[in-house]
Nucleic acid binder design. Structure first.
Lengths: 207, 207
DNA sequence: GTAGGAAGCGGAATCCACTCCGCTTCCTAT
DNA sequence: ATAGGAAGCGGAGTGGATTCCGCTTCCTAC
């Protein structure tokens, strides 16, 4: 079956005890602060101070702000990726490629919807940064499975480009689109790539 | 015919003489520095110093780094937008919507290809920042003209999302895609949205 | 139990984008 | 010509991410 690298939790193992405790302290502090004031009003200093830790520690652990943010989100992603690979259809194996793609998009966008502000404050991009490799792969497998005669890698780019947190926020906040419209749009994009004529507009074909 | 707001050049008129000369000085200095060292190695300070101008002036004039960058590119865009609205087919009026869309994408990507590093250093996004309104509108008109039964606004988002400079750089540099592959991909995306079956892969149907 | 060195730590220093504000320069209306 | 005030100016100041590096703490091998 599919062999995807799950978002790896940095299980201690090679990690020194004090380091592990610091990581935890930082994550806890960051979660609390982000929730309390919104990520865009929290500086790395703030987190360090709240965690009683120096800047060096934060950066040794997480690399940069994007890294910290991703670590914060990794739990959601681990769960989601697990459902993707091992869960029930339509997200998990068993359903036809198109259904799985739709389920994936709706799920991913739902998660993104929760975290877009935090992500936007950090500035990363899903297509480019780290742990989303698994998603690219998943999409690739399903698109190929569907048999459409397309440049699959480019299709993946288009499918993930709209996962940009800034774009998502723009649609949701500036333009006031309901999440469902974004999700429907994404599913329509999938259908386009698969060469499926035109879901005759929301007769609620799926979901 | 189409009524698009061209990228307005800040024609003096209301602008004081000293201000105009400073603007020019800044643009010249920025162009030179960006070319010389690459935009990512040039700070706003550097530009101000080279232009013999204070920071206040730079920011009064251009708002922020994205603004400065856009001003630098505005000439290319003005020309391109003019061709779009008044030029010859297939980019200009006269050709069928699909041809015009393809020509638009190829042209836009060609420009982006020249300026992606500069844009990436500034951090803006075409979908979100300023003068690209005209492009959104243009795409909207053509997509509607084509008669496809789609969520045109969402389609526009997908079409412009891949104009992100970071994504473009990623494809061109990290993945080493030739520009033409990106352009072909974009045209295929258009065709998908238009419900055009599958250009049987590069038999060079258009361009 | 302990020495040694790798891994980790703290926080000051650096680099930058962007803001603030008192001073200066245009340009227009007299 | 020229006064008045709006528009513009410079550059120090602010806040935040990220880096640097000398010091400390683990933990392993004896």
């Amino acid at each position: 079956m599919e062999e995807l690298p799950l978002a790896e939790l940095p299980t201690a193992q090679t990690e020194r005890a004090d380091a592990a405790s610091n990581r935890q302290r930082i994550l806890t502090a960051a979660t609390a602060l982000f929730e309390e004031r919104g990520a865009e009003n929290v500086s790395m200093q703030d987190v360090a101070k709240a965690a009683c830790v120096g800047m060096g520690t934060m950066y040794r652990r997480f690399g940069d702000r994007v890294g910290l943010t991703q670590a914060l989100l990794s739990e959601s992603h681990r769960v989601f990726q697990d459902e993707m690979v091992r869960g029930l259809p339509p997200l998990g194996p068993g359903a036809p490629a198109r259904e799985r793609l739709h389920a994936f998009g709706r799920g991913y966008l739902a998660i993104l919807d929760d975290h877009a502000p935090t992500l936007a404050a950090a500035g990363g991009h899903p297509l480019l940064a780290g742990p989303e490799e698994a998603y690219r792969m998943h999409l690739g497998i399903l698109l190929r499975e569907s048999g459409a005669a397309i440049d699959v890698d480019y299709a993946i780019v288009t499918l993930m480009a709209v996962f940009d947190s800034r774009i998502h926020l723009h649609l949701r906040r500036e333009r006031d689109w309901p999440l469902e419209r974004v999700q429907d749009g994404w599913c329509a994009l999938v259908d386009s790539w698969l060469g499926i004529p035109v879901a005759p507009r929301p007769a609620q074909a799926d979901r």
